Every structure is written in structure tokens, then in C-alpha cells.
Simulated assay, not measured.
Amino acid sequence: MKCPHNAHVAIVDGERFILMQNTGKPFEPKLTVIEEPVLDPSNFSAGVRHQDDVGQKLGRTQLDELAHGAAVAEWLNGKAIEGDLEDILIVADPKSLGEMRNHYHAELERRLIGELDKTVTSESLEQIAKIIANA
């Protein structure tokens, strides 16, 4: 996957959010950590959609994880609207990515260069860069 030089990369799972930047080449990314924002996951609106009995019995309803995904999307929306993000690639576990999509602002969507549905928060920077390059 092409990741332009200086593009931001959001690495997300149900508990962590790390904002990185590609300081390498588009097809040979080199990632640098910019920040790991502390979020206040307060949007539990996903709970309405995940109230089914089957999801609760099988443990698929993790409201805290979904609220975290919503909080990340809201944070990214704010940065996109302020003009602090030009190009953004989002790499998130499938559940978080699905929830985040429900909260994307049009300005964030305009700046989105791609999404990868993978859990990579515990991987090294080099491994994440390889995953992006091979996507």
C-alpha cells in the first residue's frame, strides 16, 4: 500500500491509540511515533446496536472497546477539521474500525488514504511498516 511521505498513521485497537507519521518513502514506510493521546471514551452509543442476546452470550459486546473506537474517530475528526492532518491511514482491529467508520466526519473521510483491518498495536514499528508496505 502506498503511504505518502509525512502521512499520518493511526494505530488503534479497543484500548490503545497511537498516532504515527511516515518519515520514509511511499512504498518503503518508516514510522515515527508522534503521540499516544489519552482519550475519554464517553460515547457509548454503540451499545444500542449491540444489545442482542447472542452477542452478549458470546462476549462480542465490548462497550468500552467500541466507545474507545468512537473516541478515536472523534479525536481524528477534530484534527482533520483543524487542518492538522493531511493524509491519514487508519490501521485498526476489525471491531474498532467498524465502529470508527460510524463516526467519521466528512473532512476526515476526505483526508483518508486507506484503512487496514488488522490488530498491530503490539507490533514493532518496523513490523507495522512492513504490514503497510505489503498491504
Rank of each mutant, 00 (worst) to 15 (best):
K2I: 11
P4M: 04
H5R: 10
N6H: 05
A7E: 03
V9C: 07
V9Q: 04
V9K: 03
A10Y: 00
V12E: 04
D13T: 10
G14K: 06
E15I: 10
Q21R: 12
Q21P: 03
T23V: 15
T23C: 13
T23W: 07
G24N: 08
G24T: 09
K25D: 13
P26V: 09
P26S: 14
P26L: 09
F27Q: 15
E28H: 13
E28K: 15
P29K: 11
K30L: 13
K30Q: 14
L31R: 09
T32Q: 15
E35T: 13
P37I: 04
L39T: 02
L39K: 02
D40L: 08
D40H: 07
P41S: 01
P41F: 00
S42Y: 00
N43G: 05
F44G: 06
F44E: 10
R49N: 06
H50V: 01
Q51K: 12
V54E: 04
Q56A: 04
K57M: 10
K57G: 01
K57D: 09
L58I: 09
R60W: 08
R60C: 05
T61R: 03
T61E: 06
Q62L: 11
Q62K: 13
Q62N: 15
Q62R: 13
L63G: 04
L63Y: 10
L66A: 12
L66F: 10
L66Y: 05
A67P: 03
H68D: 06
G69P: 01
A70F: 07
A71Y: 01
A71H: 02
E74F: 00
W75V: 01
G78E: 05
G78T: 05
A80Y: 00
A80E: 00
I81T: 07
I81S: 04
E82F: 03
D84Q: 15
I88T: 11
I88V: 15
I88F: 10
L89K: 10
L89G: 09
L89M: 15
I90F: 09
V91S: 12
V91K: 07
P94Y: 04
K95H: 12
G98M: 07
G98E: 04
E99Y: 03
M100G: 09
R101A: 10
N102H: 12
H103Y: 09
Y104W: 14
Y104C: 08
H105A: 12
A106S: 15
A106I: 13
E107L: 12
E109P: 02
E109I: 04
R110G: 08
R111E: 08
R111M: 08
R111C: 12
L112W: 01
I113V: 14
I113K: 07
I113D: 05
G114M: 05
G114T: 06
G114D: 03
G114W: 01
L116P: 06
L116V: 14
D117Q: 11
D117H: 05
D117K: 07
K118I: 02
K118C: 01
S122D: 15
S122T: 13
L125G: 14
L125P: 08
L125H: 11
Q127L: 08
I128A: 09
K130N: 13
I131K: 06
I131E: 09
I132K: 04
I132R: 05
A133P: 08
A133R: 13
A133V: 10
N134S: 15
N134D: 15
N134Y: 04
A135D: 14
A135Q: 10
A135N: 15
A135Y: 11
